[in-house]
Structure formats: C-alpha cells, structure tokens
Computed example of a mutant assay.
Amino acid sequence: MATVTFKGNPITLLGTEVKVGEQAPNFTVLANDLSPVTLETYKGAVKLISVVPSVDTGVCDAQTRRFNEQAAGLENVKVLTVSVDLPFAQKRWCATAGLENAVTLSDHRDLSFGEAYGVVMKELRLLARAVFVIDSNDKVVYAEYVGEGTSHPDYEAAIEAVQAAQ
C-alpha cells in the first residue's frame, strides 16, 4: 500500500491499491442529484479521477478547479472529482466556485470508490488525495497517491497521461 501522511501524521489506507496496467475497479458513488454513478456510466471515455478529502478546503478547491480547467477542452475526457462530501455540499461548492459543469461524486454512503481504489483514510473517514487516469477501455494508465494529504498532486503528469490516453 501507498504510504500517506495527513498534516504529517501517518495514515492507514483501507482498500486495494490500484496500479498502472490493471483494469480499473468498478465502484458506485452518488451524483449531486443522488443518482448512482458507476465506472460504466462513463464507458468509452478517458476518465481523470481526482480524489480529494473535501472540496471545501484550499488544496482540494485548487485541485478541482485546475483539473476541470486544464481538461475542459480535451475531447472524450471526463473529469470526475470524488470525495466523501455530501452531494448537497458538492453541488453548493460547484455553484459557489462557478463550476456548474464540474462532475463531483460523493462516496459518503458506503466508501465503495475509496475501498476499490485504496484511498480510505481509516483515522479520518475521508479519502486520501489521489489522481487516477483510466483510458477508454477502463485500463489504469496513471495512478498517483499523494504522499502528504495537504500537498498538491502532480498536475502536469496527470494531464500528460490523459493526453496520451486519448
């Protein structure tokens, strides 16, 4: 498993770490309207999955904005932000941030995504910061588990992986 800290404190990650070259595991999360969303929902598209502890924090806000801005013009690419924030809070954040077209998905109900991708922070019941790029055939082509939960991911590497997967 990846070694992760949050504010310098070691964190236990629950679930299964995914690796480049593997088939992306399925999951069920909730859209802002409470409808279920799975990996199958985005079948045939390249998926950049940006995982954040909470969209209501500075680094998470910046990460969500940056990936949505950088990938906005890319064809056949879906940018998905996953957190355990309630769908209502995610919807409010998107409206306040002026990102009405951003796709935020909530894993609060049963941590399906978090366990499938090995990003559940046991001590906090939040998701660890991570980025996954999944190609149109649902193969993992990029996986970054950010070592310190309050640090930014490698934006450039993730966007390069998205472009290579197109």
Rank of each mutant, 00 (worst) to 15 (best):
A161K: 03
Y142F: 15
A97S: 09
K19C: 03
T38A: 10
V4G: 12
P53C: 13
A161F: 09
K43G: 03
D56V: 03
R109G: 02
F88S: 14
N68I: 07
L48M: 11
K91V: 01
V77R: 03
A128V: 08
K139Q: 15
K122D: 11
R65D: 10
L111E: 11
A24F: 14
V133W: 02
K47Q: 11
I134W: 02
D56E: 13
E22I: 01
P53V: 09
S35I: 00
K78I: 13
F27V: 12
T57S: 08
T28N: 00
S50V: 15
G73W: 03
P153W: 00
Y155C: 12
L80H: 01
T3C: 01
G21A: 03
N9Y: 08
V131W: 06
G114M: 02
S83G: 15
C94V: 01
A31W: 02
Q163H: 07
Y155Q: 13
E160G: 00
E75R: 11
D135I: 10
V120R: 00
K43L: 07
K91G: 08
D85W: 06
R129E: 06
E144S: 13
E156T: 10
I49H: 05
V103F: 14
V79L: 08
G114D: 05
V20L: 08
V140D: 04
Y42I: 13
N68K: 01
V46H: 02
P36G: 15
Q90F: 01
V51E: 11
V59H: 08
G58A: 15
N137G: 14
T5D: 05
L105H: 07
G21C: 07
L126R: 06
V120K: 00
F132P: 10
L39T: 03
V140K: 11
D56H: 14
L48K: 06
E148H: 11
A164T: 05
N68C: 13
D56P: 06
T28V: 15
G15P: 03
H152Y: 15
E123D: 13
Y145R: 03
D33K: 04
L99V: 07
E100D: 07
Q23H: 08
A116V: 04
I159E: 12
F67T: 07
E160T: 07
Y145K: 15
I11K: 04
T16S: 10
K43V: 04
R65N: 08
H152W: 04
V51Q: 10
V140M: 13
Y117E: 12
A157E: 01
A62K: 13
S54R: 10
